[in-house]
Amino acid sequence: MLKEFTLSEAQQFGRAIGAVDAAFQMDEQSFRTFYDRTARPLWSYLYRTSGNAALADDLMQESYFRFLRVRFPEMNQDYMKNYLFRIATNLMRDHWRHSKVEPLASVPPEEVEQPRVAGSEHGEQTFQLRSDVMNVMQGLKPRERELLWLAYVEGSSHREIAETIGLKEQSIRSLLFRARNKLATLMRRRGLGAGPA
């Protein structure tokens, strides 16, 4: 790397640094509000679909970095939230593709990361439930986990799910139906199907 800059290079460098402040569409206050609303759901989505808490931390951070650089046509909170989940989904896929790390579906049950905090009020019950659900989730493909989480936890519409996952809207219905049947069957086998409420 060159150690000395010419004047024009220094000016160019300064302009680029100064442009960072204008590069984010959001101001800090708007970001804080948006972050407080979306960070926990996003982390939960990443953790449940990847089965790895550390990976969820990294991907969540990177998702927000990329999200802040996007220029949105309008500051619609729901649209921005879906866009954030879309970035996170793509990052997770890239991670699996490039690092050759196996998605949760092919990891043996004993290697699945277990809860990092176990000292809550209903600790034992929580631990057991999480362990059971993690095992059930292992029986699903990554895409099925994404579909189910977005539909049943985030309450996303078929169109929003299609945009987030990158599939056709028409195919979401049948994919979701199959994933849900698979999940329900696996849950009942583990004795988790106790009733609707």
Partner: peptide
């Protein structure tokens, strides 16, 4: 649907 939604 209720079962899946409840557990998740």
């Amino acid at each position: 649907a209720a079962l899946a939604a409840r557990v998740l």
